[in-house]
């Protein structure tokens, strides 16, 4: 149901179309564009002055600490994505292809709950559970192991990332695999395909798009999170979000923080576009 394209836009139509344009231009596009402009501003005597100068870019991009942090953030977000995808897969496989419809619905409903609990509180909870004298080490001590240092390590950071991303990844993978045409899996089995081979050659290729989207979301969430690396990773190796936080909150160096933020956004755009191109690339020979 569409109106003819060349008609003059009436008041009624404008009433519904305009609010979001105005609101998001002022309060969403505005901030993002201003941040880009701000990356060229200068800070003199702790005051930001409008300018067009590459000083911040030069200062950030020629420093080793920025690139160390950049590399570390990309690596640990990638590690988080690989972990989440691998850990989630068997569970999603079971829920999508082996469980009943009712079980699957309940599982997805339960997995949505964490999104509405405070991520901070969950992180704090992990902090207590993983600490030297925490629950896990107390349990391990009973069987004569430990104590293990889990906080202030990359392991701690990863536990935090998994808390953030795992429910979402399991949900996305489950939904994707549940939508596969079952008859194709049956056909593979009837033709003598072993279960593992079915997974690799039938299920994964058929759910490629959904899997890649799950991975992209997982990467974006891990890449942009400052809570896990800060509280569980001890920010010994600061990730880019921590760099933004420090530069903004303590140094008043907003323009430099803007440079970091823009670099992060460019990275995420590149990864998202590459992922989407990969997801929708047609297979050879397929129309």
């Amino acid at each position: 149901m569409t109106t003819t394209p060349r008609k003059r836009i009436g008041l009624y139509e404008l009433t519904w179309r305009l609010p979001i344009i105005v609101w998001q231009c002022v309060f969403f596009a505005g901030p993002v564009l201003f941040m880009v402009a701000m990356s060229f501003f200068l800070v003199r005597n702790y005051r930001m002055t409008e300018a067009f100068d590459f000083a911040n870019w030069e200062r950030m991009l020629t420093r080793g600490f920025f690139w160390d942090s950049y590399l570390y953030t990309v690596m640990i977000a990638a590690a988080s994505t690989v972990c989440a995808m691998c850990i989630a897969f068997p569970a999603a496989y079971a829920l999508a292809l082996r469980a009943s419809e009712t079980t699957r619905r309940w599982a997805i409903f339960l997995l949505i709950i964490p999104f509405f609990t405070s991520y901070l509180v969950r992180t704090f909870s992990w902090f207590v559970i993983l600490s030297e004298s925490g629950v896990i080490n107390a349990l391990l001590a009973n069987i004569g192991l430990g104590p293990f240092t889990m906080l202030n390590t990359s392991f701690g950071t990863l536990v935090g990332y998994m808390t953030l991303t795992l429910p979402l990844v399991v949900i996305l993978q489950t939904v994707t695999m549940a939508n596969i045409d079952r008859s194709l899996i049956e056909a593979a089995r009837n033709l003598g395909c072993k279960p593992m081979a079915t997974i690799w050659q039938v299920i994964i290729p058929l759910s490629k798009t959904g899997l890649i989207i799950a991975a992209i979301f997982c990467f974006i969430l891990s890449f942009g999170d400052f809570v896990a690396p800060f509280y569980l990773g001890g920010s010994q190796e600061p990730t880019l979000p921590i760099l933004i936080l420090d530069t903004t909150k303590s140094g008043q160096q907003w323009p430099r923080a803007a440079v970091v933020a823009i670099m992060m956004m460019l990275t995420l755009f590149a990864i998202a576009f590459a992922g989407i191109a990969l997801a929708y690339r047609k297979r050879k020979g397929a129309k």
């Binding site: 901030p31 942009g224 907003w254 956004m265």
Partner: peptide, 11 residues
């Protein structure tokens, strides 16, 4: 990422 929106909106 929220941290980026936070910085952009603050500024």
């Amino acid at each position: 990422p929220l941290i980026i929106m936070a910085l952009a909106m603050l500024a």
